[in-house]
Structure formats: C-alpha cells, structure tokens
Design a binder for these strands. Structure first.
Lengths: 291, 291, 291
DNA sequence: ATAGGTTTTGTCAAGCTTTTGTACAT
DNA sequence: ATGTACAAAAGCTTGACAAAACCTAT
C-alpha cells in the first residue's frame, strides 16, 4: 500500500496543510473521504502525510468552489488539472517573432504566430505577445530605431491574422459592439484586438476601423440597433476634436473611449465610459467574465 | 459554411411582426383575411407564426400603399414580388454580397465570399466580384448614396479576406514584389488584390500598405533585395508629391505605378512602368501568364 | 452541433448556471420542461448537471427573446444554432474536426476547416490537423475501430477541400512539379497535400493523381518540360513493381519518392531522391524555405 | 375598435431529497 | 483518526396562477 519509497522530502501533516491552505482538517478529511481529492501517505502510526504538491491541489479545489462549482465537480477538476503544460515561454516566442518581422520574414512570423496560438490562450498571445510587441515597435520608431516600413510590414501581418481570427464575428446572438477610430486616427490594431477578444467572449462585433466620421458612426450604430460603441484613438486630440459628437452619441447609446488618447476627463465631459486598461483587461471587464 | 441559406429561420408572432413593421396587429390580420397577403403557420394553440421573410412583404405592401395604390392592388404586388431564390452566376452572388454588406451583415457576406471562392477562380472573384463592388461603392459614396460607415465596414470584411488569402505570401522562391501606397494615400485594397493575384502566380510579396514614406520604402526594398516595387494611389497628387523620390528609386529598381492616380505622363517623367489595367490584368501581364 | 463527444469539461449545477446567465433556476427548469432547451445530466441523487456549453445556449435564448421572439421560437433557434464561434486553439479545432468527421457531419467539418484556414497557416492546418487525423484514421481502421465508410467519407471531404485549395496551381512561373501515384496505388491525399504546400511556396504543380501508368507519367513529364517528378505510394510493393521505369525516368529528370512505401534502399537502387518526412517538412525542404 | 375567451410564459409555493460543511463521540 | 450525525443550503417535482399576448366575432 504505502509502497513507493518516496524519495522526496517535503511531506506535510494535516495540520500544516490546513494552515497553508486555510481549510480545516476536518474538511480536508471529508474531501478525501467523499471525493478522493487527496491520497496522502500514512505514518506507521496512521498520520496523514501530504506531498507538497497537494497544497496546489487544495487551492485549485478552493478556486473551483469559489467559482460556484459543486464540491464534487470542483474535486474532479482539481484532481485532473495537475500539469500546466508549460510550452516554451511566450517571451521566447515573441523574441523570435520580433526578429522575424524585423527581417521582413513573413512566413517565419506566421509560423511563430501559429505556435503562440497553439500553446497559449488568445488572451496571453495578444496581451503578452502581440500587443506589447506593437507597443515596443512604436517606441523604437519614436527613437529612430525602427523604420516605418518595418512598422507597416508588421502591422499588415498582424492585421491579417487578427482579421482571420475575426471571421464571422458578426454572427450569433451576443451583445453587439460597434468599433471605430475617430476621424484622422489610423492606428486601429488595439481596437481590432479588443474586437477579437470580445468575440472570444461571445459578443458580436461590427468593425468600422480607422478614420471613421462621427455622423456615419452614429447612423451605423442606430441601424444596427447596437448596444455599445467603442471609439479608440492613440491621440487625445483626435477624440477631443469630436467631443460634441461623442456627447450626443452617448445620449442614445452606451459609448466607451479607449486607446492612449482616452482620458478620464474627456470621458467625464462626454458622458462616455473610459477603457483605461489593455484590450485584454477591458474585454474581460466588459464581458463581465469571471474567468 | 455558416452555411446554409437558412432554410427556415425565425418565426415571428404577430406582435413582433407588428413591432418590426409598424403595422398594427389588427391591420395585419385584416390584410390576411381580406387579401391573403400573408399565410402564417399556426401554433397548436392557434397563434400565428410568420416567417421572417414576411417582414419584407409587409414593407412592400406599405410602400405600395404610400405610392397611392389601393390596398387590394398593393397586396397583389407585394405577394408576387418575391425575390429570385437561387443565385449561381457571379453577378447574382455579388448582388447578394452587396446587399449583405449594405445591411452590415458580416456573416452573410463571409458566406457569400465562401461560395464565390468555391465556385469561381480567384481572378474571377476579384476581377468580376470584389473589385467592381468596391469601385461601385466608391461611386455610390461620391453620390451620397452610401455612407462612409458602409464603406469602412465592407473594406474591413474584404481586407480580412484578402489578407487571409495572402497568408504566407512571403515564402518560396519566386520574384519578390514590394507593395506600398505613397504618403497620404489610404486606399490599398486594389494593391492588396494585386498582391494576392501575384502570389497566386508564384511571386513573393512584401506588403507595406497605405501611407508609406518613400525613404523607408527605398530602404526596405534594398534590404529585401527586391526585384520590383509597386506604388499605388487613387489620387494623382499623392504620387506627384513624391515624384523625385520615384525617379531616384527607379534608378536602382524596377518600379511600377498603379491605381487611378497613376498616369502615363507621370510614368514617363519618372522612368517607372505604368500599370494601367485592373489588378487582374496587370498581375497576369506581370507574371507573364500564358493564360 | 459540433459538440458531441466531450467527455469531460466542467459541469454546473442549476444554481451556478443561473448565476452565470442571470436566469432564475425556476425558469431554467421551465425552459427545459416546456421546450427541451437543455438536457442536463443528472447526479445519482437527481441534481441537474449542465455542461459548460449550455451557458452559451441559455445566452442565445436570452438574445432571441430580447429580439422579440416568442419563447418557443427562441428556444428552437437556441437549440439549433452553433455555439458561438469563439477563436480557439488549433488543437481544440482539430478535436472538433475529428469529431465532426467521425459523426459524418460534413457541414460541420467544412465549417471547421474554414475556421482553421482562417486562423492558421496552411502548414499548421495540414501538418497538425488534417494529416495527423488521416494517419490516425488509417491506424484505427487497421485495428478494426473505424469502418471503411468512415475513411471514405473523411477522404472525400478532405480531398474536395485540398482540390479547392489547388485551383489554378498550374499557373505562374515557379518550378514545375509533376505529382503522381504509381499503378495500383489509390492513396493520394498525402501527395495532394504536398502539392498544395508546394503551390503555397510558389511552385507550379501538375497533378496526375492515383494509379497513374508510368508511360503516361514519363510522357507528361517530358511534354511539360518538368523540373521534378514526385511518385508517392503507401505500399512499397507498388513502387517496386515499377522500379525499372523509375530508373529510366530518373535518368532524364529529377525524381523523388514519397509516402510510407518509399524506402531508402529503393531510392538508392533507382537513383531517385527520398522524401522521408511529412509533406509539410518535405515541401519546406524542397522549396528551400527561408525559415 | 371593443368585448370576451384562450394560449403562452414567467413566477411562486409546498413538501420532500440531496449535498456538503461542521461537530462530536469513540 | 475514524465514523456518524446533523443542519443549512441547494435542488427536485408537481401544481397552480396571473399577466401578457393572442384569438375570433361583433
């Protein structure tokens, strides 16, 4: 039964496991008895000895309970979800991705995107891979270390990929978001990422893209019967230039302002919401996802 | 794919049909009784259930009434003017495609693109479907018949699809073309189509897209060791503004000018080639396609 | 729709489903009783257990209700509608693809191919989706776990798609490859995949397909002035049967042997090259991919 | 357009069972 | 440490009910 010599070291007794997880010993035993959550070794005297990894398992159990799952389900999941597959870290892939784009090597960049998407969630790929890369590229350009050609080349590759992920994003029955940049604003990749992320959470998306006149936006929103309009700009001036139109739009529709150009004072003045976080954060918040 | 022409679809009860058409339930029942305008199914309990298409029929009825016809006549016309059900030629598909985009119906537009691409060659789909549609949309906008929102929405759908077809277009060993629009020029879909068509003929493509500064273009072309640069603009002024740079670029590299803004005199003055035909024609010519 | 197997996944009790959708438990039960909207499993004690996907179904129901449909209609649509096409990883898509083909669900399989191709590169879709599936299907058939009908069904779906991707692959100016299977060999999907991948790298391809007499092949190669002939077979015997013809063909042209039936000793004896890797690897190698 | 009857659908209650955290006796 | 007990929370089924929506007929 005990079998296994158990090479390793750290074994916890039930009191210590309880202290580390905040779960009472009685309950730990109940979980073991009822759901087989843990399978501790025993001392010759019968005391339970838990391997250190069981701390994680108990915490997973708590997490699932907190999300509202039944105890039986929570235990089942906590037992099965041991290994985090841990592909090579995303930062390594992003480094390669940067190199490929810097060298105008489109096929390599595409292959790296494939690998990122295969190993990580969409949120991670965008939030820790693609978007930071774009941000950094913009800064490098500001410092004269990257050419506009490089930025355009990279943008085109990424835009193609995002639009590919977006195909069909107008279908379904979720809430509808209309996405656009104000007149003069051409940087739309962050907004595009937001759209894809909202889609991943079940929303419908209608994408109008860069440099969209406000009259036409209001009209389109009305004709689609939308629930929600997002305006995004890197430059605050671009948003301020249409402040009045935002005010009137916000009277009929829920409006949110995003991108570096969206400030809280502007949001206050116009009656719009402010999306101050990254697309990943804001998509999560908007979709009310507990995650 | 998303498929299916949607045999059935949603069935509306009389209240909802009334809400969508603005015609009171009593009147809808009267039109049914008196003129047989509609022939709804019934629930087991006797409630009327209208197929979605009846919305259109009621709207047609309203239109005829507004033009002064008698109710009997209006109903007769509304009943007979059902749209042709089957679309098989590319023009029919393009008609549907236009309708879908006009209605901001992205999934339907995607499904139609699927059908076009499944039934016709890329050259046909672009040359007789997508590009003429874009051209027409531009003209409708010029006449105030289409909004910019519609143009942006359609552009985004089409751009996503073209970039999808373009994925991996940098790989292989064919001749390399660098594609860009001059500074200030934002209309790049024709150029994108050219790139996809060149790719279909075995070329490699590096795409820099709209609003590309000339210095950076020259630099990128050199670093990639390109054989060929294409500059495209709808506005002649945008090309003339960089005439000198084109001249110097053309001394080291083969350069072609395309789009409505490319004129033979400009080509003559700069030493560049002129792409006077459509992307389909020019791709065929450039790739020396035997047909 | 795709749904199906899905052994695991987290299961929600009615309270949690209610919390996530905002629909009261009573109403969820009523929808189940009256319209069969959901079909939850039960615990041994009789509690309902909903798969996670039911959240989407309930949300679809809510969406349709909000649009004014009757509850009965809303439920009907919510039941039939696809789960929201959420961008997900290639492995998830491949799993669904496998399930769809196993269930003889051709539209679902096509839709999944669409989504894979929209979101990933051709190399990834073939190399990690379609080809492994075919391989596995062959093995299952060998163990008697899959029927011939299943294999035929899957083959025809995939062949149709590959041929669609292949359209126009003879045009352009890249190197020309002639692809064929030797007499008696009917398994050509791997070869077809190789052709599509070579095409994606700019080659021209002439595809003669399964069961091609060697005289025909030699004649075609000569008349097209080809650079390269690929012969592929799963069975080594099929290639050995035409060993002499391969020898003479290889004296005039570059010849490569692929498929499980191609062995290095045969390649040595005939003077042909050996393609020992997967179609993806070999296409990359042959086309001298930059990588 | 009104009147009077029917169907549909969300909500609630009563009475009973299962699940699960905690307590306690051995 | 084990096993049992217990009570709160959450669920189940059946049945009923009323507001909203719809019907026909006048």
């Amino acid at each position: 039964m005990y079998a296994v010599p158990m090479a390793s070291g750290d074994l916890l007794r039930i009191g210590e496991l309880s202290r580390r997880t905040g779960v009472k010993p009685d309950l730990l035993r109940a979980w073991e008895r009822r759901y087989g959550l843990l399978e501790p070794q025993r001392t010759s005297g019968g005391f339970r000895l838990y391997p250190h990894r069981d701390v994680g398992r108990v915490e997973a159990m708590q997490g699932h309970l907190a999300r509202g799952l039944s105890a039986a389900e929570a235990a089942r999941l906590a037992k099965q979800s041991e290994p985090a597959p841990v592909a090579s870290s995303i930062t390594a892939l992003v480094d390669d991705f940067r190199s490929a784009l810097d060298a105008y090597d489109e096929p390599a960049a595409q292959a790296l995107l494939d690998r990122m998407l295969a190993s990580f969630t969409l949120e991670t790929v965008l939030g820790e891979g693609v978007l930071p890369y774009l941000h950094e590229l913009g800064e490098r350009w500001g410092r004269g270390e990257a050419s506009i050609a490089q930025e355009h080349f990279a943008s085109s590759v990424i835009r193609g990929r995002l639009l590919g992920l977006a195909r069909g994003w107008g279908s379904g029955s979720g809430p509808l978001a209309v996405l656009a940049c104000p007149p003069g604003e051409e940087h739309d990749l962050g907004l595009l990422a937001l759209g894809v992320l909202l889609r991943a959470r079940g929303w419908r998306v209608a994408y109008l893209g860069p440099d969209t006149p406000m009259e036409t936006l209001a009209d389109a929103a009305q004709r689609m019967g939308t629930d929600f309009v997002v305006l995004s700009a890197l430059s605050e001036a671009r948003l301020e230039a249409v402040e009045d139109e935002i005010v009137s739009l916000a009277q009929n529709t829920r409006v949110a302002l995003g991108g570096a150009g969206a400030t809280s004072s502007l949001a206050d003045r116009t009656g719009a919401e402010l999306l101050s976080g990254s697309p990943v954060e804001e998509a999560e918040r908007l979709a009310g996802a507990p995650r």
